[in-house]
């Protein structure tokens, strides 16, 4: 017979073990990916001029970071993405709240929002550049546009799906519509907001990279286009690797925010 504590301990051990196995596999896949890439490139299974190789990317990155050119591109892109992400997400939440506050307004706006959502936002790029100038303002606007409408739609429908009985409880205490929002509707949509945050990380990257393709002045998106034009695919791949790393870090940060929110939102 095991004691309760022993059972709990073995449960914990089991969990730890599972976690370890998953982690080992994740590392294995990562290493295998780069190793295979390197080998394939060296043995000419793939054309190294087109697909480069991890070792070339590594040396190229070291060089570009050493002379400082990479860092300025990277920071510009990161700045634009974070700003586009924040404005897009907050703007979406705000718009959704506005729609929720005025029921009739939301009904009137419905078809327009549907059209806006179906529209490929990056197609608006040229117009935005004409309107806001070929600078970081346009690029941030792209990052914002790509995420704002879908955020609005998701959060607005989440608002409407909140069990009306929570509001009923509050109304029985004589709560106003605003109090119902603050105490029930908003906190109940917290999970949706958090998942929206994660989706928006990816979306703002799309907007910003496409924006940089179009504006073509600086940033990682610009480096990709530039590398493509001068046939320097190591540069293209380096930028892609950097984008992947940055996006992953941003995603992790958002996850951290999520954990913090879950703990402190109560």
């Amino acid at each position: 017979m095991k004691s309760d504590q022993q059972l709990f301990d073995s449960y914990l051990k089991e969990r730890k073990k599972e976690k370890k196995i998953v982690l080992i596999w994740q590392f294995f896949i990562l290493i295998m990916f780069f190793a295979l890439w390197e080998i394939a490139s060296r043995l000419y299974w793939i054309d190294p001029l087109l697909f480069s190789s991890p070792s070339r990317i590594f040396t190229s990155l070291i060089g570009r970071f050493a002379n400082g050119s990479m860092f300025s591109h990277l920071s510009v892109t990161l700045f634009e993405t974070i700003l586009g992400f924040i404005i897009g997400t907050l703007g979406g939440i705000l718009l959704a709240t506005l729609l929720w506050s005025f029921t009739r307004f939301s009904k009137i706006m419905d078809p327009y929002i549907v059209v806006l959502n179906a529209m490929p936002k990056v197609a608006l790029g040229p117009i935005i550049i004409v309107a806001l100038g070929p600078g970081y303002l346009s690029i941030i606007a792209m990052g914002f546009l790509v995420s704002v409408i879908i955020t609005t739609i998701n959060i607005f429908s989440a608002y409407n799906e909140v069990d009306p009985n929570y509001s009923k409880v509050l109304k029985s205490f004589g709560a106003t519509r605003w109090q119902c929002f603050k105490e029930a509707v908003f906190p109940a949509t917290m999970p949706t907001m958090i998942s929206t945050l994660k989706v928006n990380v990816g979306l703002s990257w799309v907007g910003v990279i496409v924006g940089e393709y179009l504006v073509s002045k600086q940033g990682l998106g610009y480096l990709i286009i530039y590398g493509f034009q001068v046939f320097d695919f190591t540069l293209v791949m380096s930028s892609l690797v950097l984008i992947a790393i940055l996006a992953a870090i941003m995603y992790k940060v958002v996850e951290g925010i999520e954990r913090w929110l879950i703990k402190h939102a109560h």
Partner: peptide, 25 residues
């Protein structure tokens, strides 16, 4: 009004749930 289902707010702890009415006022 005590509704047929309890509708306690899952994101509030028990004491905050209980003190909801006074908070609204």
């Amino acid at each position: 009004y005590m509704l047929q289902q309890d509708y306690l707010f899952p994101w509030k702890n028990i004491i905050d749930n209980v003190l909801l009415g006074p908070k609204i006022h």
